[in-house]
Design a protein around this nucleic acid. Sequence first.
DNA 1: TAGATTGTTAATCGATTAACAATC
DNA 2: TAGATTGTTAATCGATTAACAATC
Lengths: 219, 219
Amino acid sequence: MIELGEATVPAATVARLPYYLRALRDLAEGGVTTTSSSELAERSGVGSAQLRKDLSYLGSFGTRGVGYDVQSLAQYIATALGLGSEHRLAIVGIGNLGHALANYSGYAARGFQVVALLDADPQVVGNSAAGLTIEHVDALEDVLARTGVSMVVLATPGPVAQAIAERIVACGVREILSFAPVALQLPDDVVVRSVDVAGELQILAFHAAARAATNGTPR
Amino acid sequence: MIELGEATVPAATVARLPYYLRALRDLAEGGVTTTSSSELAERSGVGSAQLRKDLSYLGSFGTRGVGYDVQSLAQYIATALGLGSEHRLAIVGIGNLGHALANYSGYAARGFQVVALLDADPQVVGNSAAGLTIEHVDALEDVLARTGVSMVVLATPGPVAQAIAERIVACGVREILSFAPVALQLPDDVVVRSVDVAGELQILAFHAAARAATNGTPR
DNA sequence: TAGATTGTTAATCGATTAACAATC
DNA sequence: TAGATTGTTAATCGATTAACAATC
């Protein structure tokens, strides 16, 4: 549960808001001005009851018998997601993945701006990527302060992630998106979202194994 | 809930098994031969009661008063995750992200092997990456059959993801890891894991906004 | 035996779903 | 008014947590 002013929003609901926003923007692009909970839910990959329940935690946005105004609901969710204010990102660890994340083109449209890239490899420091010069992670504290970073994307190797995360937190950053395959131990008020590609593949492998064990070997 | 032979394993438990395996392998590398639920749980970022409960769905692996043998528990979880058999992957969509995923070096150690890369861009088709020649997505069906792919990583732009996913499923593939920002509509027996980087950032932004709304503007 | 730690039970908590009254 | 669709209630379901008996 996450406190938002007076309201309390379940974490599971928050995790779905980006899907709703995405679906609403797709609808808006297609020229659709009004939608229903069932249409929006289908495009978001959830049930319509769940969509309505989720929205009910944030307020009341529809018109009974009619549906939802696409533009205004999108605007509302975007605001709830804090996308009105600009979020300044640093990416730490400019390997294959960090490089790809730096060059991702969708940040601006979603209210994010990459303002700093850092790495520990002398071969990489000084190079430029995505219009920025890669700086040395030794200067992390200076760089974060100078560029006004509010969120960090961590794409370092696992073994150094914990130490760097602690330095990031010491700089006052409270939101971290980590691609490092370790469980970061950080104070409770720091929000860490973790993406683990190898772990996702392992979960798929479990499903494949379960299918084989339950159905007999598939054709 | 996921059926595994006679046992039934909660989906939430399956999603944590990769963390346990990772922590066990770290311990093994450090020369540790025996561990406890509390040590392993801390390294995995979960509570010790949850760890023991999760393992209990798979069987009984520890010794009361002693703990768990690191090697044999790691081996057991790896087997449960289907990492004994080899999983052959294709990556579709070799943009920034697909390229980074192709060059990720951790597959082999985890029982995965990338055997095909596909893209729709004529400028990209024919290039080589990660030791493979990038093939045209028009030949998807041929390539998947020829290379014996059992899982696909989808890293295409959103608008084409649904159509390509349908073709992948028609080839008999039942496990898909998608980085495309859309909710794929596929038959129920297809397992889709979805990673949405922009969505993760939006969830972090929600937390930042909630913090600001609840605590007043932070210093 | 005494101490330690598992595996399991039972209680709690949170999330999902179905159904429907409210209301446009 | 009749039809449609929301917002909400209540029931169900699944996941987490704490506590402890079993047992090494």
